[in-house]
Design a protein around this nucleic acid. Sequence first.
DNA 1: TTCCAGGGAGTAT
DNA 2: ATACTCCATGGA
Length: 243
Amino acid sequence: MTLEFEGVNASFVESYFRLDDDLPKILVQIGKDDYVSAAINEFRGLRILRQEPWECLISYICATYKSISAISQMLANLSGKFGEKICLGSHNVYTFPKPEKLAKAALQELQECGLGYRAKYVSETVRIVHKNGLDFERLKETTYEKAREELLKLPGVGPKVADCVLLFSLEKLEAFPVDVWVKRVVLKHYAKHFQTEFVRKNTSQQSLSTSAYEKFSAFGREYFGKHAGYAQEYLYHFERVHR
DNA sequence: TTCCAGGGAGTAT
DNA sequence: ATACTCCATGGA
């Protein structure tokens, strides 16, 4: 298999696509049952990205209660308005804005990017991170639980956003983010791991309480093990394709 | 037009 | 602790 790239060096590509992970070994580890095995067999090769923590954090704060396409649009707006222009051949692209740049942005400017009520959360979190210089490198070194606790203090960051940031940018591969899609998968195919009353309640109602979230997420970490995040990613994609 | 989206925060019980 | 409610915006 070959991988072509340009404009970056090989070490970046290896890092960004997590080529340092032993994917075949991980897929064996998380292949605990026929259902997740089906997802693995269909999408074998699907990877988790090692994203830049700052970009990941702001992106997932923006992503709450929004459709994927709308999220893409919002982030493109942010980059176009506050990022740096890069010329790639014939067309221009924009980098994700740096903390110091977003820290200077007015609330209304953020709202003009389509952030809606999230503009306030982004604005406040931007200031906290920029001012105190939230040490993402330290969060990488510490445990899943401690790093999660730190992230949850930020405005606009709840358990779902925290788990996404931990998984996609802070080296916490045991994180098992539970969104509406993963919730559906677990309720449909892993119901036997929960009390029937819990399954019934969470099947009928669309919202997800904090305590219910923690039960779903803890199940994922315990059932799939230290690389539960990979299982989440395969199940998530499998559900979205076959819904 | 109505519904819902890779949820979170605020408030009432 | 748990339940209920609101939140801006855009695509389907």
